[in-house]
C-alpha cells in the first residue's frame, strides 16, 4: 500500500478486455475495504474501436472518478500508447503490450514495462487472456492491493465457469512469474 490514492488507466481496443481488468482492480479495491470508482470512456470516445477506463482506489473518499493523470497505466495497443504516454504522472508506471506496440520514443521520468502479453497468453492456449497476464505483471511490480485479494476479485468477476476460472488464474500467475524475472 504505497500511497493513499492510486489512479489507473486501462486502455486498448474493444475486445482486449481493458474495461474488464479495470473492474477487477476496482473490485479488489472494494474487497480491501478501500474507496473505489470505475469510470469508462463512453459515447463517441468508444467509436473507432478504442476503449479505456479509469479506476481510482483510495483510503479516503474519492472526488472525481475521471483520471487525467494516472499513476499506473496499461496500454494494450499502439493507439492507446500514443494517447496516454504523456498523461502518466512523473514517477508513474506505464505497462505496454509489446505484442501490439513497437519500440517507440518513451519517457525518462516514468517507468515503462514492456511485456509481450499476447505471446504469453498464446503459449497458454488462449490469446484472449492477454489482459489478465498484464494484470498479473502489474500486480507483481506495482501492487496496491494484496495478491490474494486481487485473485479473489478476478475469480468473483470471471469465475462462473470452472474452466474459465482456471484459465484466468493461470494467466494471472503467468504474468506475475514473468514480471518477477524482469525485476
Amino acid at each position: 500500500m504505497s500511497s493513499a490514492l492510486t489512479k489507473y488507466k486501462f486502455a486498448g481496443f474493444g475486445g482486449q478486455g481493458v474495461l474488464f481488468i479495470g473492474k477487477v482492480m476496482a473490485q479488489a479495491g472494494m474487497l480491501s475495504k478501500q474507496q473505489v470508482t470505475w469510470f469508462p470512456a463512453y459515447g463517441p470516445e468508444m467509436r473507432g474501436g478504442t476503449a479505456h477506463c479509469s479506476v481510482v482506489i483510495s483510503t479516503k473518499r474519492i472526488g472525481s472518478p475521471t483520471v487525467g493523470k494516472p499513476d499506473i497505466a496499461i496500454v494494450m495497443n499502439e493507439a492507446s500508447y500514443h494517447k496516454f504516454i504523456d498523461s502518466v504522472v512523473p514517477g508513474g508506471t506505464l505497462y505496454v503490450n509489446s505484442s501490439m506496440v513497437p519500440e517507440l520514443p518513451g519517457r525518462e521520468d516514468i517507468r515503462i514495462v514492456r511485456v509481450s502479453v499476447n505471446e504469453i497468453a498464446h503459449e497458454m492456449g488462449e490469446e484472449k487472456v492477454a489482459n489478465i497476464v498484464m494484470l498479473g505483471v502489474m500486480q507483481a511490480i506495482t501492487p496496491t492491493v494484496a495478491d490474494d485479494v486481487l485473485e479473489k476479485a478476478l475469480m468473483e468477476l470471471a469465475g462462473k465457469k470452472p474452466e474459465l476460472a482456471a484459465l484466468n488464474a493461470r494467466a494471472f500467475k503467468a504474468g506475475q512469474e514473468y514480471a518477477k524475472n524482469l525485476c
Binding site: 473505489v36 470508482t37 470505475w38 463512453y42 472525481s64
Partner: peptide, 10 residues
C-alpha cells in the same frame, strides 16, 4: 450527469 450515470462504485 454522465459521470454519475456511467461510473461504478460499491
Amino acid at each position: 450527469d454522465g459521470i454519475l450515470g456511467q461510473m461504478m462504485e460499491p
